[in-house]
């Protein structure tokens, strides 16, 4: 762990400036990802997990803006890049996989056209060798008969196969980091199992780092090395997956883990977190979870600082779960 991390997100704040007010979609989030490491970024809808991913890739449009913080990728602060520098990084050194593969794929172009385009945008190679790389990428994500599939259009693929093609496009330039935004949420369990299997294999073989954004803790449990939990745009806690799942320190992570049906006695009422996620528009200072938290005290009206309660564990809470 002596080498500097591949990616260091430090105090990231990304706000939307809307007519109704400032929406603090990401508000002071920090984490690091090492080379070859898989980080699970977990949170419910509106927790800012996807916006954190978009911020890393510079995909935030007006009225959204990164207002504070640094995103250091391999020694470069991404928040200061110009458009030309971004073109050299996006799709080349950092790639993204979206929940809906049709966000990546153009419905009127054949698969070979789309993958070759991604290769030629970044490498000065012949069309033939670009096509060979495209073919190899399809093989790596477990697509049978790649030559035939290269000549097909996206609508000729099933949902699971489309997602594999999107992953192949992300992989084709050998990126250092892939950001995956819920890529298996819309898929059936058996297909999800296949995709998780391919991603795990690819990352292990090529040493690609992966940020896997999801609301599903149980996917992270089998896949990731580290986990970072977010709530209402704020960092909640992070640590090794095994440690966080076994001994969550933040009352929110504990509530989330306890509400999973398999952690409960069959047929009995589930542990539930009362209330619902607050609106990000009206969110004042202090811990955003305090309204739903059983441990909350008047002190929680102030924002807790991030502490390191154990080696490798980081936490933002005054009242950690004992």
């Amino acid at each position: 762990m002596s080498a500097p991390p591949l990616l260091q997100v430090d105090g990231l704040r990304m706000h939307f400036f809307t007519k109704a007010g400032v929406v603090k979609a990401v508000d002071d989030v920090s984490f690091t990802v090492d080379r070859g490491e898989i980080l699970g970024l977990v949170g419910e809808s509106g927790s800012g997990k996807s916006m954190t991913g978009y911020s890393i890739l510079g995909l935030v449009d007006a009225p959204g803006r990164i207002v504070d913080g640094r995103i250091v990728f391999d020694g470069t602060d991404l928040t200061r890049l110009d458009a030309a520098a971004w073109r050299r990084i996006r799709g080349n050194r950092i790639a993204m996989i979206f929940q809906d593969p049709m966000m990546t794929l153009n419905p009127v172009l054949r698969i070979d056209t789309q993958i070759v385009e991604a290769v030629l945008a970044h490498a000065d190679v012949s069309r033939e060798s670009a096509l060979a790389r495209a073919r190899e990428a399809l093989v790596r994500v477990g697509i049978a008969s790649p030559d035939e599939r290269l000549r097909a259009y996206p609508h000729q693929f099933s949902g699971g196969m489309r997602q594999r093609v999107a992953i192949a496009i992300a992989l084709v330039n050998g990126p250092d980091l892939i950001i995956a935004d819920e890529p298996t949420t819309a898929l059936d369990v058996t297909i999800q199992g296949q995709i998780l299997f391919e991603m795990q294999k690819v990352c292990r073989e090529s040493g690609t780092a992966l940020i896997w954004i999801t609301h599903d803790l149980s996917v992270i449990a089998g896949l990731a090395d580290e986990v970072c939990v977010m709530y209402a745009g704020r960092f909640v806690e992070s640590g090794r997956v095994a440690d966080v799942l076994e001994r969550p320190l933040h009352p929110y992570s504990r509530g989330l883990i306890d509400s999973v049906p398999s952690r409960n006695e069959r047929g009995r009422p589930l542990h539930q977190i009362p209330g619902m996620t607050p609106s990000l528009l009206s969110l004042g200072p202090g811990c955003p979870f305090r309204e739903r938290c059983s441990e909350a005290t008047p002190r929680c009206a102030e924002s807790p600082a991030i502490t390191e309660p154990a080696p490798g564990r980081r936490l933002r809470c005054f009242h950690p779960v004992p």
Partner: peptide, 24 residues
């Protein structure tokens, strides 16, 4: 049996996914 094997579990053991082949 295949479906049960595919349920993602909360047990924090990193596991190798052994998928069933093919699609519906």
């Amino acid at each position: 049996q295949a479906l049960l094997a595919e349920i993602p579990r909360l047990e924090a053991t990193k596991r190798a996914y052994i998928p069933i082949k093919g699609e519906i």
